[in-house]
Design a protein around this nucleic acid. Structure first.
Lengths: 239, 239
DNA sequence: AGACTCATGTAATTCGTTACATGATTCC
DNA sequence: GGAATCATGTAACGAATTACATGAGTCT
């Protein structure tokens, strides 16, 4: 679980309250991680009882009291250990790809319009990230965290490259879809009447004809498992 | 929620059991969606009681009975409606970027090694996807779903472009990190002693100096909300 | 007058993973 | 003899979102 580690990372900069952590998230890692206050507050409590952070109440007259968390030696150790471990690969879940995958059930223009909407969304994020560079510069300067600037910038560029790849793909997809024959669309009535029991049979048949290709497809998730296994061998236990 | 819609999409090809759906997932959309049997079975039950699918028990002597689900008219309507709606943008959560973000706490070589591991993972996926093309071709042919081939191929290419972008970024990141000064690393002891209360103050300061940049950073999530809002205006209620 | 900020939370719900359970058959 | 396939599930847990709750102070 990365949320607690991200919180530790920020608290490692200096003592902070949950409310401020939320602000920090919003203004720095929002494009690749987010957390609501309702998730942050319990997480901090749990981290405190695990001895990773310490809490001090700052009494305020006019406003609600602040609970300021600072990192402990144990917390810093946990953070450093986690940072140095290989990152877990998360299962991607991309609804737009499901829509394209089943695109033959739609009218051509409908599918194209879905893709156009998706391009708009991605382009908005790209526009945000382009501006984010200048903003992060002054943010980092003002907090005296100049050393962090380069690392923060790298994460922004990751976002830019990935979202730009999405945009490029979607444009190419629209081109390809528009070149497709009308008969490829709205074909829900004329699916083959074959009992889908054949899914299994087809896999068996392909298995005998081209064992290599199947191996790769069938073991996609096992591949991940193998990676995880390899990691354990490489670096000791990965919790 | 897209899982039920993905299930509907497959059942729309023809009647299927939960077990076969899992196989279909593994051999076609595994790179952008996955579901365990323990999630599929209850989902099918719920869809049945919602009237989106119908179930018939096929008694088998030797093996456990099969519960074959087929799509209803209501189900097909729900599927088509969902497919035509703009796709939701999911919050990205990328642990590797957290590690880079807090990379200054590590030693240079540690951070580079984390990135190298990440490259290995991504390249394995890229290798799988390159093979997947040929596999999907014969799979689609054998099932008599030739029309779907082009749409399936598009999703594979999306995966290729995005994961390739990740690989490219990580290589560039390693280059940049290796060019960085040693002093930028392991600097956890000399963070400024400023009370982090200043997060709020810094934001206020920047807000007055460069209101444009802040607007973009501060409203990243609101931007998403705006997109959702715009969608509602564009297309009616998006549940 | 109404919205936003500061500052804390709890509760309910959804989505997903992991573990556990059963039991015959077939492949190595 | 042990693992994998076929075929169904349940239960527990974890992560994240949404909704609800409080309450003073400030901004428009």
């Amino acid at each position: 679980m990365s949320l607690k580690h991200a919180l530790l990372g920020f608290i490692n900069y200096g003592p902070m309250t949950g409310y401020e952590l939320k602000k920090f998230f919003n203004t720095s890692v929002a494009h690749f991680w987010n957390a609501e206050l309702s998730q942050i507050y319990p997480a901090l409590k749990a981290m405190e009882s695990d001895g990773l952070v310490e809490m001090k109440v700052e009494v305020q007259g006019d406003r609600p009291n602040r609970k300021v968390y600072s990192i402990t030696d144990a917390g810093r150790q946990v953070l450093l250990k986690w940072l140095a471990e290989p990152a877990e690969m998360e299962q991607v879940r991309d609804p737009i790809l499901i829509k394209v995958f089943f695109g033959s059930a739609l009218k051509k223009e409908q599918l194209v319009s879905v893709l156009r909407n998706s391009i708009q969304d991605s382009e908005r994020v790209v526009a945000y990230l382009k501006q984010a560079h200048t903003f992060v510069d002054s943010f980092v300067q003002s907090l005296g965290l100049q050393q962090e600037g380069d690392f923060w910038a790298l994460t922004i560029e990751a976002g830019l490259k990935i979202h730009q790849a999405e945009v490029d793909w979607a444009h190419e997809a629209i081109r390809r879809i528009e070149a497709m024959d009308e008969s490829a669309f709205e074909c829900r009535d004329d699916y083959p009447d074959i009992e889908m029991r054949t899914v299994t049979e087809v896999l068996d048949r392909i298995k005998s004809v081209m064992p290599d290709a199947l191996a790769s497809a069938d073991t996609y998730h096992r591949t991940h498992a193998v990676i995880a296994g390899a990691r354990k061998t490489r670096e000791g236990v990965v919790r």
